[in-house]
Each structure stands twice: as structure tokens, then as C-alpha cells.
């Protein structure tokens, strides 16, 4: 039923099949007791691809995202990131996580540290970079997200949009092989959303491998290479974004799109 509805990436998709998959999710399932959160989910993201995962709330998209860097566990299936199996007991999760950037819905900047310290902490403590090197890298990234003058501020002194851009810079500072975005704009006021999306768009254009859980259909349509649609813990569609928006193949995706685009 679901398999028949699942659309394979079409040959006209910009991501070519030869490029290796950075994130390979194979038949993941997860449940809390009787409640199934993820049901037999498979998808892959090739190097340099930006993939949007969307769906109604409670569809399991955020859970799937958090499985990729092991913040959530899963009972069956496998996830391989850059050749490393996430669910493997012997995998050094800490090391793997330091190579995957993550951006949270509520930013999760460390409130007691300055903006620059937020960006240098993991560089120094995890990657063992010198303070100077970490600070230089931090300043470069802050300027890149348009916040070069905010280095000495504390997170609570910034607007939500500014905080989220700092969070993106914090993740980029680790030179990640891929970036995970968990509803990065859902907690923002409308006028802040644009700034954050611009930074994300630039990242995608620069070839960052990205998995983005979001309701921003403009970003999905114009920036993402592919769109994955989830409902009830299943992946119902996986298609190049132009195809997904032109003619979604499932009824549920059509309903979802009509609701969200009407807003």
C-alpha cells in the first residue's frame, strides 16, 4: 500500500545516483509500547543534497531526524551516516555527533555563555582546537550569518531570529558533514523567519548536505532538492520537490498541502 505510493527519485532529479549517500536510513521502526512512532521508514540523502521532511504534527518527522544523530533510539532498521552505523553498540556516538550539525526549534543556545562562547565551546572541548583558532572561526561564521557585532552578547539579549542564526553558526563551526534542522523557524515571529531562511538557502546553495524538518513550503519548493512527506510514522512520498508540489501522489499529501498553502 505504502510501497506502491512511494515514488522513486526520478532520473531528472538534480542529485545524480552516483554520488554516495551521506545519510542512509533503512527500514527504521520505533515504538513506545503499543504506540508506533516510526514505521518502516527508508530514505537517503546524498552528499550536497538538501531534503525537506514535512507532514502533519505527530507524523514522526522530528523523531526520524533525531534518530540520525542518535538523540532518539530505534528498535529496528539501520541508519548509516558517512559509513558509520548509528545504532551500532560499538559506534562512538559522541564522535559521530561532533561531525553532524543540528539546529533546534527552540535554538537551545547556552544562556550562561556569550554568543561567541556558545560557538567556541564544542570546538575547544570536542575538537581540541585552540581558543584563538575557535574564536577566529566563530567570528567568521558570525559575520557570515550577519551577526558579527553580537559576539559579546548573551543569547537572551538577542531576538529569536538572531538566536537561531547563532545556533546555525554554532553548528557550522564544527565543520559538519551534514546539518539537521528540527523545525528551525517554528518558534519565530514571521518577520524573523526570512533572515533564518536566507542563511539556510545560502548553505544549501553552497552544497551543504541538509535534512530539514519544516513547514516552510516556500523553502521546500525553491531550495530543497527533494521533499519527503510523512504521516502516522510512515514515509508516504519521497520525490523531487518540483514533482511533489506539481502533483502529490497521495491523498494525504494533497490534503496537507492544501491546508498549509492556504495559510
Amino acid at each position: 500500500m505504502t510501497i506502491s505510493a512511494l515514488r522513486k527519485a526520478s532520473p531528472i532529479a538534480p542529485a545524480s545516483v552516483e554520488r554516495p549517500a551521506t545519510i542512509e536510513i533503512t527500514r527504521i521502526s520505533k515504538s513506545y509500547g503499543a504506540l508506533e512512532v516510526l514505521n518502516d521508514c527508508s530514505m537517503s540523502i546524498r552528499k550536497g543534497e538538501a531534503v525537506v521532511v514535512c507532514g502533519p504534527s505527530g507524523s514522526g518527522k522530528s523523531t526520524l531526524l533525531k534518530c540520525v544523530n542518535g538523540l532518539e533510539t530505534f528498535q529496528s532498521g539501520s541508519i548509516v551516516v558517512d559509513g558509520v552505523s548509528v545504532g551500532d553498540r560499538n559506534t562512538d556516538l559522541t564522535r559521530l555527533r561532533s561531525r553532524i550539525g543540528m539546529v533546534f526549534q527552540h535554538f537551545e543556545l547556552y544562556p550562561h555563555l556569550s554568543v561567541l562562547e556558545n560557538i567556541t565551546l564544542a570546538q575547544v572541548k570536542v575538537l581540541r582546537r585552540s581558543k584563538t583558532e575557535a574564536s577566529e572561526k566563530g567570528m567568521t561564521l558570525l559575520r557570515r550569518v550577519g551577526l558579527g557585532d553580537k559576539a559579546g552578547c548573551h543569547p537572551a539579549q538577542l531576538s529569536g531570529g538572531q538566536q537561531q542564526r547563532v545556533a546555525i553558526a554554532r553548528a557550522l563551526a564544527m565543520d559538519p558533514i551534514a546539518m539537521l534542522f528540527d523545525e528551525p523557524t517554528s518558534a519565530l515571529d514571521p518577520e524573523m523567519i526570512k533572515d533564518v531562511l536566507e542563511v539556510m538557502t545560502e548553505l544549501a546553495r553552497d552544497g551543504m548536505t541538509m535534512m530539514v524538518v519544516t513547514h516552510e513550503m516556500g523553502f521546500a519548493r525553491h531550495v530543497a532538492d527533494r521533499v519527503v512527506f510523512m504521516d502516522d510514522g510512515r514515509i508516504l512520498e519521497d520525490a523531487p520537490s518540483s514533482v511533489f508540489f506539481a502533483q502529490p501522489s497521495t491523498e494525504r499529501a494533497r490534503i496537507f498541502l492544501s491546508k498549509i498553502l492556504r495559510q
Partner: peptide
């Protein structure tokens, strides 16, 4: 989660 995600 944020601390864990950054590899701490």
C-alpha cells in the same frame, strides 16, 4: 540534547 548533538 543540544550539548549531546554538538559532540560533548
Amino acid at each position: 540534547l543540544a550539548a549531546a548533538a554538538s559532540g560533548l
